[in-house]
Design a protein around this nucleic acid. Structure first.
Lengths: 141, 141
DNA sequence: TCCCAGACGCAAATGAATTGCATTTGCATC
DNA sequence: GATGCAAATGCAATTCATTTGCGTCTGGGA
């Protein structure tokens, strides 16, 4: 684990380091429960209180360090390090597989124009449909 | 309340009629709790079990009659009659106001081209930023 | 009208997330 | 290196949305 920009008067505790590293190594957004279990097994045994994970994630989110999301159709939140870039997903309505989109459809569209009363700073997009394996068109947009 | 297409061997019960009508009159998606309370006061007194609302909504969703969503950042699901058209929202990061977009940015863009491995049938988009009152730009996309 | 699968009511169960409070611990200071 | 204290944590209890088991009720076809 290396030195890094860690803001204001916050303590760089063992637990926070652990959560941070787990998120850093994660390929995809993780739920609080998942993070908890990873931390647990990483430490060999019980190391954390689940509530601590939630508190840490809340702090990290507050700092803009992590991004909290909830997949549509899911009920538990997932967290990922805010790496500056954002990813959108195509979600299969059949098998619920999540396929990351390689590019953002808005890359060259200025959403800011959409509304005059609103300053857009970010956006979230999800496509729903069927993956190659489950292909079975039925509904219309 | 009027006659309508009501599919298969499902019973058109008092409770289902009530939930259906509440959703039909709703201007915006409602939470299960909200639907429950509306039904309660519509009936003058206790009329429903909360669990019944959930069961009815699950059935309606299964039938494609209603659409279940969860606002990002919220934890409770909301339900709306599936009216064929879809609405996107701009959500204020400050006051959490939700401003419906008058038009879908994808109206004339064929999302289907995005991925070859995926047949897109619907999508969900949310913009995040600051409304006129709360304007205070800070983050970048 | 009768019948019964499907619906419902109720109360208990789940499960994610939060919170109160006593205890611990970074870390700035001495 | 020792000290002090606000910040962080552990733990257990709590909240709140949603689900479920089960006995009872009822819409609607025969």
């Amino acid at each position: 684990m290396d030195e890094m920009e860690y803001p204001q008067g916050l303590k760089w505790t063992r637990q926070r380091k652990s959560v941070y590293n787990i998120l850093r190594n994660a390929e995809e957004p993780l739920s609080a429960a998942r993070i908890y279990h990873l931390a647990e097994q990483e430490a060999g045994g019980k190391d954390f209180a689940p509530s601590t994970v939630y508190r840490i994630l809340a702090v990290f989110e507050e700092l803009g360090l992590v991004e909290k999301t909830t997949w549509m159709g899911e009920d538990t939140a997932v967290y990922a390090l805010n790496r500056g870039r954002h990813t959108h997903y195509a979600v299969c309505l059949q098998c619920h597989k999540r396929i990351p989109l390689q590019k953002c459809p808005f890359a060259h569209i200025h959403l800011e124009r959409e509304t005059e009363d609103f300053t857009v700073v970010s956006h979230k997009l999800e496509l729903y449909g069927y993956c190659r394996e489950c292909r079975e068109p039925e509904r219309e947009v």
